[in-house]
Design a protein around this nucleic acid. Structure first.
Lengths: 271, 271
DNA sequence: GATGATGATTTGTGATATCAAAATGACGAA
DNA sequence: TTCGTCATTTTGATATCACAAATCATCATC
């Protein structure tokens, strides 16, 4: 039994909505990853003393991991039933996600994973560059050999996951690397803001696989290693520029895919 | 019947906690403003179709207005009773504030207005400068004569409120001026972040009155008018620098007061 | 007077009940 | 087929209930 809500919008439907039916922007993300979402037993071990927090953090992981598709509906009762708990904590977790802007939710309507357009993604890109670059700089200034070592270990695991095509582990390690880096900035409020922004783009990260990922591997080399060096040398400029470049490239790519899909949809509508 | 929760910590107690007992950092904020908080009838007119949102927005206004003191406890049942509603929506509104970091809340404990130390205030200052300066620049680039006119009207009202010593109207207009300016940046995600950060410093704004306010009036002149000019001329640099200066001065002042109080408290403890 | 144990009360959390609004599906008309 | 209407079902929001944990008050002890 999984936490996934009843799915009434699939990736295929999204691409049809955007008008990309039949047109292949690289690879179409599959739904395979839904098969192995966390079970309830794991949920209980997640951080948070209170049930609503456990549900919240669990949903966060699923969203970051790309387990939900843009437009997908999340209903209180189905989530509650799947977890074997009452609707109350689930509703509160969803309310938290809605108020953060991670989910869409109008009054008396079910929560949904937002369908973002290119402009919205660009706005998030701009904000993420602003705040994550600050976090990166501060982290670099607090850099230690220990931190560099930890980051290198994560980067190594990431390479292995990527080589083996394990998208789930890949996304998870990308997140853990960045989290580990930023946490050194010692600005808890900033980290919270970054976490929330990350969730907003989570459902779209699947669009990066595998074309963009391969592209980057060739064109940018081992940029995470350069971040590790920057951390060792306490060089904010290096770390900042690598983080900025990654965010700019990644989110611009996503925005382009989304806007191309929208263009094709309009063209199809006129047909 | 008001929304104010049972107060178990007063400003006087806070200052005692910080050790400033008997020492006057400018003026000691009074509790007068508690007398005229909004009534339930007004709450209903507040934005939000759903009860929990109404409670949330209402609490936000109270927090921004400095109606709560740092350390003050907010209990679900008392808020619910005062509003004549069930505990459920109140609990959800408080949960939202806690998860935003606006309130402190451990598991199975009542929510509290956070007691911030100087470092925490400086962190918030740094973040606020980062994000509000961006908002200010973007707003300036989108500047219109109409916006400048609206801002001037608000600045005029603010002057009147300040002249008459109406602290409540003063704080409210300071907020409305800044909100009006930032909303022109057309970055909803950024505005949401700013709103949340504002709430975190809200309970400490009272510390600015009246000494800091008088100080500023003499030393910085009519800086809001300069912002209006910057908006008219679509000059991001002007608007940005004024916003940055205001934030830096204001929050540095608050941080200084807080850290002086902490110093005196330690000195008193050794005595 | 300060400190610590203990019983009473308050309070937060999660489950359940109820109701109104929204989504769904069947049916019939254009 | 397509659209609109109406009955049914689903779903979210709020109130209420039950319980456990935290808080508070009282009293005894040092």
């Amino acid at each position: 039994m999984t936490l996934c809500a009843k799915i009434d919008v699939s990736w295929a439907q999204i691409f049809r909505y955007f008008g990309s039916q039949g047109t292949n922007f690289g690879s179409t993300p599959e739904l395979d990853h839904r098969k192995d979402v966390m079970t309830m037993k794991q949920v209980v071990e997640v951080q948070g003393d209170v049930l609503r927090d456990k549900v919240y953090f669990h949903l966060c992981e699923l969203i970051r991991g790309g387990h939900f598709s843009p437009g997908e509906k999340l209903t209180i009762r189905s989530l509650a039933n799947e977890q074997g708990i009452s609707p109350t904590p689930v509703r509160e977790a969803l309310y938290r996600l809605i108020s953060e802007g991670v989910l869409d939710g109008e009054a008396n309507r079910s929560a949904r994973i937002p369908l973002l357009n290119a402009e919205q993604i660009k706005e998030i890109k701009e904000i993420r560059i602003l705040v994550e670059c600050l976090a990166a700089e501060k982290a670099a200034m607090n850099g230690t050999p220990q931190l560099a070592k930890t980051l290198r270990a994560l980067a190594g695991k990431l390479k292995m996951a990527r080589a083996s095509g394990d998208r789930r582990a890949d996304l998870s390690l990308v997140y853990r690397f960045q989290t580990e880096l930023y946490s050194a900035c010692e600005m808890p409020n900033l980290i919270k803001i970054i976490g929330s922004l990350w969730l907003k783009t989570g459902p779209y990260l699947n669009l990066l696989f595998p074309d963009y990922i391969n592209l980057i591997a060739k064109s940018r080399g081992d940029w995470r290693e350069r971040i590790c060096v920057g951390v060792e040398e306490r060089n904010p400029a290096i770390v900042r520029s690598e983080v900025e470049r990654d965010l700019d490239d990644t989110l611009s790519y996503i925005a382009n895919v989304v806007s191309a899909a929208a263009f094709l949809r309009r063209a199809g509508a006129d047909r």
